[in-house]
Amino acid sequence: MLRWAFDTLDLNRVQSGTDTRDLASARVLEKLGFVREGTLREECVVAGEVSDTWVFGLLGREWRPAAGPLAAG
């Protein structure tokens, strides 16, 4: 998906957000090269509970495709 975003669509930036309590999702984004850029305080409601959101960004010039069979697709 990132290859398509940066190579085909020629995007400069891809952004994502995750609930601050969801550490596993934050780790996945960081492994993909995303940088945590900030916190949106009380940005969403999850199961009736107000929660903060971490915002992650990845710039095209920072992105490096992963090696291996999944990278070819």
Rank of each mutant, 00 (worst) to 15 (best):
W4Q: 09
T18H: 11
L2F: 00
T20L: 15
R13E: 10
V35S: 14
W54H: 11
A26W: 13
L29Y: 07
L59K: 09
E30V: 07
P65L: 00
E30S: 08
D52E: 04
V46Y: 05
W4E: 04
R3K: 05
T39Q: 11
G38I: 04
F56G: 00
A71C: 04
D52L: 01
M1D: 04
R61W: 12
L11Y: 02
L23S: 14
G48A: 00
W4N: 09
T20F: 15
G17M: 07
A24H: 07
T18C: 13
A26H: 13
V50Y: 02
R21I: 11
A47E: 14
T8P: 08
S16L: 09
L59H: 06
L9E: 08
T8L: 09
D7H: 08
G57N: 01
G33H: 02
W54P: 13
F34C: 05
G48R: 00
L2H: 01
M1V: 03
F56C: 00
R21F: 14
D19A: 03
L29H: 08
D10A: 11
A47Q: 12
Q15F: 09
L23Q: 15
L40F: 10
A24P: 05
L32F: 02
L59E: 02
D7L: 08
V50D: 03
V28D: 06
L29N: 07
S51L: 13
R64T: 15
D22C: 14
G38Y: 11
G68N: 06
